[in-house]
Computed example of a mutant assay.
Amino acid sequence: MDKVRLGYIGAGNFSRNKILPNFQALENVDLVAVSNSSEESSQKVQEQFGFSRIEKNWSNILESNDIDAVVIGTRTDKHYEMSIPALKTGKHVLVLNAMTRTVTEAKEMLSVSNENSHLVSLIYPGQFYVQEDAIFKRILDSGKIGKIQHIIDYWYTPFFGLGSQFEVINRIFGDQVRLFANRTSFQQESTNTDHHGRSVRPESNTVLAQRQDGSLVSYFHSTVAGSSQHSRIEVYGSEGVVVCGSFQDHSYIKIGGTKDENLEDVLIDTDLKPLWDNGDSILVEKNFIEAITSNQKPSSSIPLFSDGLKLLEFATAWKESNDNGVWVDLPNQ
Rank of each mutant, 00 (worst) to 15 (best):
M1T: 04
K3M: 09
Y8W: 14
N13L: 07
S15A: 14
R16N: 11
L20Y: 06
N22R: 12
F23P: 00
F23L: 06
Q24G: 01
A25Y: 05
A25W: 03
N28M: 00
V29H: 03
V32Q: 12
S41H: 02
S42N: 02
Q43K: 12
V45T: 15
Q46M: 13
Q48H: 08
F49Q: 06
E55H: 10
E55M: 13
W58H: 10
S59L: 03
I61M: 07
L62K: 00
S64K: 01
S64A: 15
D66H: 14
V70R: 00
R75I: 02
T76H: 00
M82R: 00
S83I: 01
A86D: 08
A86P: 03
G90E: 05
H92N: 11
A98I: 09
A98S: 14
M99L: 15
R101D: 10
T102K: 06
T104C: 05
L110P: 03
S111G: 08
L119H: 01
L122K: 00
I123F: 07
P125W: 15
G126K: 10
Q127H: 10
Q127F: 12
Q127R: 10
F128E: 05
Y129H: 06
E132G: 05
K137M: 08
K137P: 01
D141Y: 10
S142R: 06
Y154H: 09
Y156T: 04
S164F: 11
N170T: 03
N170S: 15
R171D: 00
V177M: 12
F180T: 01
T184W: 09
S185M: 02
F186E: 06
F186W: 11
Q188V: 09
E189S: 15
E189G: 12
G197C: 03
R198P: 00
R201F: 06
V207T: 11
R211Q: 15
D213W: 01
D213K: 00
G214Y: 06
V217R: 02
Y219R: 04
F220A: 13
Q229I: 03
I233E: 04
V235N: 05
Y236A: 04
Y236L: 14
S238T: 12
S238W: 05
S238D: 08
V242K: 00
H250R: 13
H250C: 05
S251R: 14
K254D: 09
K254F: 12
K259P: 02
D260P: 00
V266K: 03
D271F: 02
L272V: 03
P274H: 07
W276T: 02
D277T: 10
N278V: 04
S281K: 12
L283P: 04
V284I: 07
K286Q: 03
A291I: 08
T293K: 10
P298V: 06
S301G: 07
D307C: 09
D307T: 13
G308E: 07
L309N: 09
L309D: 02
K310P: 00
L311D: 07
L312W: 05
L312T: 01
T316A: 15
T316E: 14
T316W: 01
T316V: 02
N322F: 05
N322E: 13
D323Q: 11
D323H: 06
N324K: 01
N324D: 15
G325Q: 10
W327F: 13
D329C: 03
P331R: 14
Q333W: 14
